[in-house]
Design a protein around this nucleic acid. Structure first.
Length: 770
RNA sequence: GCCGAUGUGGCGGAAUAGGCAGACGCCCGGGACUUAAAAUCCCGUGUGAGGUAACUCACGUACCGGUUCGACCCCGGUCAUCGGCACCA
């Protein structure tokens, strides 16, 4: 903590896998290292930390296979990562390392969980979950990709299990709205918004003809209520049991429900072209605006987890309802003019027809009028829904933070007293999940059986552990005061470091880590632990590095390139330069072994230049000045590739014209964040004082950016025909006159009259002849 | 299907407040140095045509069209590739 302005630059801390740091790490890490180094040169007090996201499955699986403790595996992997990071010359604050598996760390992860529990944001519930058949573990929705486990690629099935959940949905609205307050790149914002999936509509009650029951639906198109000709409920919907005695075809219905329950969410989605369903015969619903009795179906295209699990079907104006209605011969009523509902559903805008008091209104007006009407009659109201679901927070594995909850027969779920934290992960004989799908912790009787903290009666510990995302949801706070033991972060340190100023990380974490950690931070804000609404002021994202063949680097493809090999062959500076020069930082890029040489040559050529006799007076002052500005500006915009190109161009000019001491001093200073080793070596050889990395970032002189002479393009009819040299800011008339006198232009102009000329100051003149 | 990107030489990529397309690098060709090779240095390098030559002309930023004195850039449409979401009512 100093009087200098502070700057907090953050990378996503690595999972220390057995494979070590890979090429994918070097791009974002080098980028942020360059930012951090530049900030230091600019006089900031910089926090640029690193740590280890060390809980997780690969380590645990390795431990099971090789009969070693995950702790030992983790320690070994971390050591390897640390060495690699150092050999890449990353300027991390090595005295601030955090490790999510360290009890002094996970004590606070457990503490946050307890606060969530106390505030009703952590709850346990029986629900269908995603079960990975290979990991033998529950997965969050975000961890299921294309119906398979994100991590191991094995099949994911549905299973009923009692699970700890975190109520992220309670923060859905703020997680969307507060994106307006932060500087995140647009695609991150859009992706988070789409994932949260906010939609505005209405809930509407439909009376049933049986048992005095009613059915509430959610719809985004209340304006089409007059066209609702049937209803559909999800196979899991509770209404089925409530009116069971009135249903005439109960056997048929039960068979359908059983078959639906056997399908995974993914399978249900896969079969989306062919709609299936069964009518609940003997019971009807009443359309509240038409008074018509309409049939009720159950079909698995309606999801129990969204809205109310029931819909009003408007086949005229919803594609899925249209398909279902066509297959089952149900009436299709047109209530918005503009399409041909006999041919296909019409979901566009138009005027309401066949809709009583809505007739003649456009969709938007009709919506609000209908909501107004429903509200006044007490049978409906406006409603916002989200696609986001609550976060499944239990894992049936060993290598994670134990959940600090005890279950007592009398008192229910009872939180451990905070003084008992950390709840240590006990030693076990086997790390393998039990055959019943329980965590290995469940096998340790003396750990499981405890006294209830509330009533003292017999109770059992929770044996599930937290998912890997827990520790990473708040690690950036711990860096501010890694050894503080009275709270998760020292309030003074927090006050000093504030928000993360710049956080760069992968797009693949947009709907996982980035969303989760924003959620945790908002919760900590609500309970007064942190002072801002958002943890990260700025978020950027790098593109992927692919193999030489344009494919994702993977062992099975055999196209993996180890950073260590490149360092051994060319040195760390060359790797750093090339990974930045490879292309647009935000775009995917293919590795090219040949192109690496260019960066190596660049560094060698600077060395050669520095070894030559120096000029006493600079011949390239203007170019040096311009390059300082360009490199500085480009770094801020993550345009490292053009920053390097500009330095290469400057070197070409210096090589041609000769370099002065000051030319070299400036070039080495702006190159230093990219290639710290080479620049320091040359800095010493040139007997410059101090360290290259500790120089001030060079200033450029704005006055010297102005050139006294300009080369202007001369166009005829928009096509380049010649160039002329003019004093800067020459009057338009002079420019046109000079252009017309130009030999080439005069030739073209022969026998023609000039009818128009356009002059763009200091750039070009365009002449139109007739 | 929806959302978000992207499409430029042999290759990676530059250039958007609409103003000299191809910066920088790789590859490739020619030359110098060397007994030779590597390394290094110098020259050339978008395509086509013409000229002994300095050069000149035409074409050219996925495709079709438009706006403009002028379009890689803006507008309308089409195609392709990549990423995300996907029966979300």
């Amino acid at each position: 903590m100093s009087n200098k302005p502070k700057y907090y630059a953050l990378i996503e801390f690595p999972y220390p896998s057995g494979n070590g740091l890979h090429m994918g790490h070097t791009r974002p890490y080098t980028a942020m290292d360059i930012i951090a180094r530049k900030r230091r040169m600019e006089g900031y007090d910089v926090l640029f930390p690193v740590g280890w996201d060390a809980f997780g499955l690969p380590t645990e699986n390795f431990a099971i296979k090789n009969h070693v403790h995950p702790k030992a595996v983790t320690a070994k992997n971390i050591e390897h990562f640390r060495e690699q990071a150092k050999s890449l010359l990353y300027s991390f604050d090595w005295d601030r390392e955090v490790n999510t598996t360290d009890p002094d760390y996970y004590k606070w992860t457990q503490w946050i969980f307890l606060q969530m529990f106390k505030h009703g944001l952590a709850y346990k519930t029986k629900m269908p979950v995603n079960w990975c058949t290979s990991c033998k573990c529950v997965l969050a929705n975000e961890e299921v990709v294309d119906g398979v486990c994100e991590r191991c690629g094995s099949e994911v099935v549905r299973k009923e299990k009692s699970q700890w959940m975190l109520k992220i949905t309670a923060y859905a609205e703020r997680l969307i709205n507060d994106l307006d307050e932060v500087d995140f790149i647009e695609r991150v914002k859009t992706q988070q918004k789409n994932w949260i999936g906010r939609s505005t509509g209405a809930e509407v009650d439909f009376q049933l003809t049986a048992n005095g029951e009613q059915l509430t639906v959610y719809t985004t198109r209340p304006d089409t209520l007059f066209g609702a000709t049937y209803m559909v409920v999800a196979p899991e919907h509770e209404i089925i049991s409530k009116i069971r005695d009135k249903i005439e075809n109960i056997a048929e219905l039960d068979a359908y429900i059983v078959s639906a329950s056997k399908k995974s969410d993914f399978e249900r989605g896969e079969l989306n072209k062919d709609k299936t369903g069964v009518e609940l015969k003997g019971v009807k619903a009443i359309n509240p605006v038409t008074g018509d009795e309409i049939p009720i179906f159950t079909a698995d295209y309606v999801l129990s987890t969204y809205g109310t699990g029931a819909i009003m079907a408007v086949p005229g104006h919803d594609e899925r309802d249209w398909e279902f209605a066509t297959k089952f011969g149900l009436p299709i009523v047109e209530v918005i003019a503009g399409g041909n509902v006999k041919e296909e559903a019409f979901s566009g805008d138009g005027l309401a027809i066949n809709s009583g008091f809505l007739n003649g209104l456009r969709v938007k007006e009709a919506k609000s009028k209908m909501i107004e009407w429903l509200t006044s009659k007490g049978i409906g109201h406006e409603k916002v829904n989200y696609k986001l679901r609550d976060w499944v927070f239990s894992r049936q594995r060993y290598w994670g933070e134990p959940i600090p909850i005890v279950h007592c027969e009398h008192c229910g779920y009872v939180p451990l007293d905070e003084s008992e934290l950390p709840l240590l992960l006990p030693e076990v004989e086997s790390y393998e999940t039990t055959d019943t799908g329980e965590s290995p912790l469940s096998a340790i009787d003396e750990w499981v059986n405890v006294k209830c903290p509330k009533c003292g009666g017999p109770a059992k510990r929770e044996t599930d552990t937290m998912p890997q995302w827990a520790g990473s949801s708040w690690y950036y706070l711990r860096y501010m005061s890694p050894n503080y033991d009275k709270a998760l972060v020292d309030p003074d340190a927090l006050k000093y470091w504030g928000q993360v100023d710049w956080y760069n990380g992968g797009m693949e974490h947009t709907t996982l880590h980035l969303l989760y950690s924003r959620f945790w931070y908002k919760f900590l804000y609500d309970i007064g632990v942190v002072p801002f609404k958002e943890p990260y002021a700025k978020r950027t994202s790098q593109g992927m590095i692919l193999g030489e063949d344009g494919q994702k680097m993977s062992k099975s493809r055999g196209n993996v390139l180890d950073p260590e090999e490149v360092i051994a062959q060319y040195g760390a500076d060359t790797l750093r330069l090339y990974i930045m020069f490879i292309g647009d930082f935000e775009q995917t890029a293919n590795w090219n072994s040949n192109a690496v040489k260019g960066c190596k040559r660049f560094l060698d050529r600077i060395g050669a230049l520095a070894a030559k006799p120096l000029l006493s007076k600079s011949e390239c002052e203007a170019s040096v000045n311009k390059t300082i500005k360009k490199v500085g500006d480009d770094i801020e915009q993550l345009k490292f590739n053009t920053a390097i190109a500009a330095m290469m161009a400057l070197l070409n000019e210096l090589t041609e014209k000769g370099a002065s001491k000051e030319d070299l001093r400036a070039l080495l200073a702006i190159l230093c964040p990219f290639a710290p080793q080479t620049t320091q070596e040359l800095w010493s050889r040139l007997r410059f004082s101090g360290e290259a990395a500790k120089q001030s970032w060079p200033n450029y002189d704005p006055a010297k950016l102005v050139e006294s002479e300009k080369t202007l393009a001369v166009q005829v009819g928009g096509k380049l025909r010649s160039t002329i040299v003019m004093p800067a800011d020459a009057p338009d008339d002079d420019i046109v006159k000079t252009a017309l006198n130009d030999e080439k232009i005069a030739k073209i102009a022969e026998g023609k009259t000039l009818i128009k000329s356009i002059v763009v100051k200091n750039k070009l003149v365009n002449l139109i002849f007739k």
